[in-house]
Amino acid sequence: MKDTRISKLIVEIIALVLIFLFVYTGVSKILEHNSFRSVLRESPAIKSKANFFAWIIPLTEIITALLLLVPAFRMKGLMLSLILLIMFTSYISYMVLFIPNLTCSCGGVIKEMSWRQHLGFNLFFIIISIVGILLQQRTKDFIAINRQSRKPV
């Protein structure tokens, strides 16, 4: 019982940290939209769809934060966080390997980081997302149903 309570608390903290991260970076990308789009246009991997990505990335980040905010959708939010972070990390790995001189298109103060620092930063958030998913699965609340009366017991 105590274990479950601690697990729930850890999931809450992880969700709050991820909410802060996604709202902060999402809003920063919207506020600095022109600058963000300019950097995306210079990235060989996505420059042809830069306008699309310049909107869809911050919007997805904000949707992820909203899913994490609502306890009923938290699992979906954690899954989406993990998918987003893996995608961002793959992109960063590609940049580190092939175009290390290009600037980062990340939101807010995060773009002050070097590619390698950013890689470490993302790996940390991937790990906490995985921990969050595992703990959230473990602490799922069950309602026992009486087979005869169909009433919760």
Binding site: A15, L16, I19, F20, L21, V23, Y24, T25, V27, S28, L31, A65, L68, L69, G107, G108
Partner: peptide, 12 residues
């Protein structure tokens, strides 16, 4: 959660 959202928007 709401407080964290407001904080993140403000910091951003």
């Amino acid at each position: 959660g709401i407080i964290v959202v407001i904080l993140a928007v403000s910091v951003s």
